[in-house]
Amino acid sequence: MDLSKLAIGTLIAGAMTATIIGASSAEAGKTKGKEKCYGVVKAGKNMCGRADGKHSCAAAAETDGDNQEWLYLPTGVCDKLVGGSLESGKGGATAASTEKEG
């Protein structure tokens, strides 16, 4: 692939702009703090180890909405999500489907 200087420059500028624009919302969240949110993360997208210790890797979640897997979210967001829980073992995909049915 022959990449011209111009193409590289454009790619970098686009990525930088997208990242900087993302700063306003991401860092506004940081000022409010973050909290662990269980039960809402997709498979492979968790941040760290499972609450029950079955693994201790980021990105090792095997199923969507597992209530032992978590990711950091800005404070206050987790409670607004279907299946989201601030405590491990609660919420998750099972709770989400029950809520839907209910």
Binding site: M1, L3, K5, I8, G9, L11, I12, G14, A15, M16, A18, T19, G22, A26
Partner: peptide, 27 residues
């Protein structure tokens, strides 16, 4: 430098997604 590194990586991995990379690893 970023320009040189990116040029080198795209030669070998045209599918490399620099936008995702930058956003993910800064986060």
């Amino acid at each position: 430098p970023l320009g040189i590194a990116l040029e080198e990586i795209l030669k070998n991995y045209p599918e490399f997604n620099f936008v995702d990379f930058l956003q993910n690893y800064i986060e």
